[in-house]
Amino acid sequence: MIEGITTFGPESLLDKIKGFEPVFLCVIGTTETSKIENISGAGASAELTEYTPAADVELMVHGKVLCTDKMAETVVDGIAAPTPAVLTKASLEIGDIPFVIVDAGSKIKPNVGAMNLGTDYGRDIRTGKGVLNPLEIFENARELGRELDSRHDYLVIGESIAAGTTTALGVLKALGYSADGKVSGSMPTNPHELKLETVNEGLKNSGLDLDNIDAFQAIGAVGDPIIPAVAGLVLGGNGPIILAGATQMVAVCAVIKAIEPNFDFSRINLATTIYVAKDESADLFDLASQVDEDLTIHVVNPEFEKSSYEGLKLYLNGFAKEGAGAGGAMFTALNRGVSLEDLRGKIEKLCE
C-alpha cells in the first residue's frame, strides 16, 4: 500500500509497474465548445479557454506561460486555485519522470516542442461536426503509441482540453451509455443541464442514426481531438498504461471498446484525484463500470487540507479538481517512491 493512493478494482497495475520506467504524455487539444458561456471553468473567461491547453504545457516545460498573460486559474475571495498543471509539473520534477507533449489538434499552438497528430482543431459540437478528422488523429496516434511502447516500460497519458467533460458526455451518449448528470467538471456547480442541452443539439444536427453508429462517427459529431488521440496511443502498443484523468478517460475507454470489443482492460488503469472521485455532482465509478466492470481506478489524495498554501485548499471546495494529467502524474511520482509529504511540499514550492 502506498500512502496517498487508494485503489478501486481488481486489476491493479501497481505491482506490475513497480521499478519500471514510465514516460508521461500530455495530450492537448481544442474544442470550440469551450467558448459557450459557463460550460467550462478552465479559463479566465469563455473566450480564453482556448489558451488553457497551450498554457498548461508551457508551464510544464518553461515554468511560465508564454501564449497569454491570463493564467487559467480560479480566484475566490482574492485567493487563486493553482491550475492542475502545477501539480503535474511538480510530480514530473520530483519523480524524475520524462515527458512528451502531444498536440492532437489545438487552435492556440504552445511555445514548446510537440508531436503533432492532426491538421485541425475541434469545433463547437452543437454543429454536429465536432471533429473533422478523427480517423487521421487516431491513425497518427496509433503509430506514435507503437513507437513509444517500444521505447518505454509504460505510458502515463494525461490531457488538457477545456470543455472536455462535455465532449466526453457527447461521445458516451452517442455510444449508448447512461451518462446524463455523471460527468465531472472544473467548478463546484456542475452545469449538467447546459452540457446535456449542448450534446443533444449536436446529436440532432449530426443527422446520425444513434442505433447504428461507430466510434469515429460519435467522435466526429460530438467529440474532441483528445479522444481519438488517446485511444490511438493505447491501441498502438501492448504494454501497461495509466490513463491520467477521469470521465474524459472513461469516454476514451468507451471508444476503445467500440473499436476493439474484446480489448483487455487489465492493461489500463485510471488514476485521478480524490477531488474528482468524491465529486458529488458526478459519478466516475458508475461510468467506468458501464464500460468494463473490472476497470481499475487509483485515487490520489494529496491531502491539501494540510497545505500551508491557501490556494490549494480551494481544491477541497470543488475548484479545479483535476486536469493536465495531475492525478496520474502524482500517482506515478508516489509509485516511484516519492513521499506524500515531499510531493505536497514540491507543489507548494511551485505555487509560491
Rank of each mutant, 00 (worst) to 15 (best):
A218Q: 06
C351P: 02
Y121W: 15
D15H: 12
L87V: 03
M330P: 01
L312Y: 03
V183K: 03
T166Y: 03
G237C: 11
E303V: 00
Y177D: 09
D56K: 02
L284Y: 05
N262C: 06
I268L: 13
V76S: 11
Y275I: 07
P110Q: 10
L316Q: 14
G63M: 12
P228Q: 05
S34Q: 13
D286F: 14
N238K: 15
E159W: 01
E201C: 07
I101M: 11
I5P: 01
N335R: 14
R146T: 13
M187I: 01
Y309N: 14
G170D: 06
K18Q: 14
T31C: 07
K182I: 06
E73R: 12
V76Y: 10
A271W: 01
N301E: 07
I227F: 05
G41D: 07
K70I: 00
G207T: 10
L196H: 05
V65E: 06
S106R: 04
Y275M: 09
I268M: 09
G122L: 04
I157K: 07
D214K: 10
M60A: 10
N205E: 08
P261S: 12
R126M: 12
P228D: 09
G345S: 14
A179G: 06
P10G: 11
G164C: 08
C351S: 11
I268Y: 05
P22G: 11
F24Y: 14
N301T: 03
G158I: 04
S178C: 00
A221K: 05
S339G: 07
